[in-house]
Amino acid sequence: MSCALLGSLGVWVLLHPASIFVQPWRAERTATASEDVLLGPYPVEADFIALKQRGVTTIISLLEPNVPYERVLLEQERELAARHGMTVRNFPMGSILGQKFGNDYAKNSRAAAEAALGADGIAYIHCYLGLHRARNVQAHLAANVHSASFAGTNATPDADHAAERRAKAAFDAGDYAGSLAILATITRKTPRVLRVEAWNYYRLLRITEARAAFDKVLQQQPGDADAVAGLAYCDLFENRLDAADRGFGQVLAQKPDEVSALEGLGHVRYRQSRWPEAETLFARAAAMNPANPETRQMLERIRAASTAPQGAPARTAGAAAASAIP
Rank of each mutant, 00 (worst) to 15 (best):
L5S: 02
L6D: 05
S8L: 15
L9T: 05
W12Q: 09
L14D: 02
A18Y: 09
S19P: 03
I20C: 13
Q23L: 12
R29A: 14
T30W: 12
D36V: 02
D36C: 08
V37H: 09
V37P: 07
A46H: 11
D47C: 01
F48T: 01
I49T: 10
K52W: 12
K52H: 08
Q53F: 10
S61L: 11
L62V: 04
V72R: 09
R78F: 06
E79I: 14
T87C: 00
V88I: 12
V88H: 11
N90P: 03
P92I: 08
M93T: 01
G94V: 01
S95W: 05
A106G: 10
R110N: 02
A112F: 13
G118R: 02
I122H: 04
Y124F: 15
H126L: 12
Y128W: 07
L131I: 07
H132N: 13
H132E: 10
R133A: 11
Q138H: 03
A142N: 00
A143P: 00
N144K: 04
S147R: 13
F150P: 00
G152P: 01
N154I: 08
A162I: 03
E164D: 09
A169Y: 03
G174D: 04
S179E: 06
A181Q: 07
A181E: 13
I182G: 00
T187I: 07
K189R: 14
V193Y: 09
L194S: 01
L194M: 05
L205R: 15
A210Q: 01
R211C: 04
A213I: 03
V217R: 01
L218I: 05
Q220V: 03
P222L: 14
P222T: 14
G230W: 13
Y233A: 04
A243S: 11
A243T: 08
A244R: 07
A244M: 13
R246G: 02
F248I: 07
L252T: 04
L252Y: 13
G266Q: 03
H267F: 12
A278D: 12
A287Y: 09
A287F: 08
T295E: 09
E300N: 14
R301I: 04
I302P: 01
A305R: 09
S306F: 01
S306Q: 15
Q310D: 04
T316I: 06
A317D: 07
G318P: 01
A319I: 11
S323Y: 11
